[in-house]
Design a binder for these strands. Structure first.
Lengths: 229, 229
DNA sequence: TAAATGTTTCGATTACGATCGAACTATGAA
DNA sequence: TTCATAGTTCGATCGTAATCGAAACATTTA
């Protein structure tokens, strides 16, 4: 039994509390500096630096210098998905670090998951697009149908520009709170950006919570309900 | 950042090499005894016992006594899926424990993944069923269409009996080698059993490899190709 | 009953890695 | 230049957890 990928190596990287905190913080999708991540993880800068270089070596994250800052972000969607799956398992078997509280409820409703909308509202968006045939599964990835293209374009998203990029347009991502899929990929990100542009929603910089304004939520509900025919 | 599921706890469980070996061995879907798993992991029985109780406490596996033996298996499909995802990441970033060899090639072609068929052939079965509309995605799970029911029943699978069980009928499971989905769930298992019943394929008890006989593979190819209309 | 096999508990050893203070490098500002 | 901020490297300390020998416990077989 010494064949195959070395899962212990990757799992051990995630298995340290400080590193897990760092990775969780990066699930917001934003790139953070070493100092910020040290604070998130609750360790000194030296310790964080050591952790960050290990995570980098393991290809779990991506580092880029910018002046005297060094910004870190998750390496790719796969890492984010793995982390979500881990959260799902941990949550289901009751291994929470704190009791579910009001903050938790907000997280379950709408939160950032590596730049796209997750939680109850994320799942609702995904389901409605699936039900209307806007997106279709194709192997591991999803395809945006012509109708879906029209829908997104009509909503103010420059789908053509997204298609030119080499990152996948649509992907599905499993929610740990809902245990359902929500929309990821560059289109998923574009939707979240658009919600912010329109003033429907605002990201909380610290907590991954996305708060929708009252009217924003109303518009959102229309968006996912309308023309179910 | 102290909210949410404790991913470090779960990841650390998987992050020990001996425990990772144990979990990998259980990916075959078979229930194994403590002694067998100790051998797989390359540790003494005492050490394995300690690991097994930790994994059990973390709800990663399921233990059942039977006489003077104690059988262990993975707790559920979610654990298996998490492990597959981990393998995918580890493989993609090149963290293999050994060079890809002939054994690896066989693993990539057809192997057991928690009781169902994985690898190239697993993906082909999944794709053909998807293309013919036999299975359809629905949220996280998959639905078996009427045509799909007929197809499976015609192949000698007692779909009605499977439906009565409380475990999901169809699920998708991501392949680490193919990076595509193959069919999991009780129907996935039923297909593999049926292949064995018909003498098309045989499981290698040690390595997760599934070897198809020459005629078995021919039949299989017809099964996934026929009536693509 | 005794013997054999399978598994767990106990205790001691050991090794690895997380942590941080201190010193060092690098970039930007004054 | 000098100062300040950001990050890394070094070295020492410290804790925890993996490991295994030995012994206990459990269950089946003879």
């Amino acid at each position: 039994m010494k064949e195959g990928p070395d899962i212990a190596y990757i799992a051990a990287l995630i298995g340290d509390p400080a590193r897990a905190n760092i990775l969780t913080a990066l699930m917001s999708g934003r790139a953070l500096t070493a100092t910020e991540l040290a604070a998130e993880a609750g360790v000194t800068l030296q310790t964080a630096s050591s952790h960050l270089s290990k995570l980098d070596q393991g290809d779990l994250l991506h580092a880029r210098r910018q002046g005297r800052h060094k910004y870190f972000s998750l390496a790719n969607d796969d890492v984010a998905q793995l982390l979500e799956k881990l959260m799902g398992l941990a949550a289901r078997s009751g291994h929470l670090r704190h009791q579910p509280g009001p903050k938790n409820a907000a997280l379950r409703k709408a939160r950032v998951c590596y730049h796209h909308l997750a939680g109850d509202m994320g799942v609702r968006l995904f389901d409605s697009m699936m039900a209307r045939g806007y997106i279709r599964p194709e192997g591991e990835d999803l395809t945006l149908s012509n109708e879906g293209d029209g829908f997104a374009t009509g909503f103010g998203i420059d789908v053509e520009a997204l298609r030119l990029k080499k990152t996948p347009l649509c992907r599905e991502c499993l929610d740990w709170s809902e245990r359902r899929c929500h929309l990821a990929g560059s289109l998923g990100r574009a939707f979240l950006s658009r919600f912010e542009e329109l003033g429907w929603a605002k990201r909380n910089q610290k907590t991954r919570i996305i708060s929708f304004s009252r009217s924003g939520e109303k518009h959102f509900n229309q968006l996912v309900t309308v023309c179910t025919r």
